[in-house]
């Protein structure tokens, strides 16, 4: 294995050693990895110390508090809007009902007529009363026609008048 490694080293192909993966036998790779590892750990430690410092904690707490306050404020506004909408709908409902009442009143007043409050209801005509009225009208009309006819005959022939007088004298 050493021969194999030296062969590559002699050729200057150090990078190929990364692919061969012989841990602990390549000083160059080992050193690099160690340095990287050390740097990451240092950074992590620093970050951890930073995160756990009182300042960071205070900043974190303030941020969290502010976020929650803003969320509560948004919620309040949403509920305010919902309640306002409820108020508007209730008002609209009352208006609709009032309009409906006005329409109903107008209909009732229209049906009863303008004198509904001052005059009693007129008697409704029945079938019998209509028939009696029709018969009376017919009789009156016949009598009128008869009188007219007699007057007409008398006007057209004056002899008929005289004949009547003679007949009365004979009698």
């Amino acid at each position: 294995m050493m021969l194999f490694q030296n062969y590559f080293n002699d050729l200057g192909e150090h990078r190929l050693l990364h692919f061969i993966e012989v841990p602990g036998q390549d000083p160059l790779t080992k050193i690099e990895k160690k340095e990287e590892k050390n740097m990451t750990e240092e950074k992590k430690t620093e970050q951890k110390e930073k995160d756990e410092s009182p300042d960071a904690l205070l900043k974190h707490a303030k941020g969290q508090a502010l976020e929650r306050q803003q969320r509560a404020e948004r919620m309040r506004m949403e509920f305010d809007d919902t309640n306002k909408e409820t108020d508007d709908k209730a008002k609209r409902l009352a208006h609709i009902d009032t309009d409906m009442n006005a329409a109903k009143d107008a209909t009732v007043v229209g049906m009863l007529g303008p004198d509904a409050h001052t005059k009693p209801d007129a008697p409704q005509p029945t079938v019998e009363s209509v028939a009696v009225n029709a018969k009376a009208e017919s009789k009156a009309e016949t009598a009128e026609n008869e009188v007219e006819r007699k007057d007409q005959i008398a006007a057209e022939s004056p002899d008929a008048g005289r004949g009547n007088t003679a007949a009365r004298q004979v009698a």
């Binding site: 508090a65 929650r68 306050q69 803003q70 969320r71 509560a72 404020e73 948004r74 919620m75 309040r76 509920f79 305010d80 309640n83 108020d87």
Partner: peptide, 16 residues
């Protein structure tokens, strides 16, 4: 009665 909703800060302080 219309529900009274506290402001965001009031609510946060009240609960916290």
């Amino acid at each position: 009665a219309r529900p009274v909703i506290p402001t965001g800060q009031e609510l946060y302080d009240s609960l916290m």
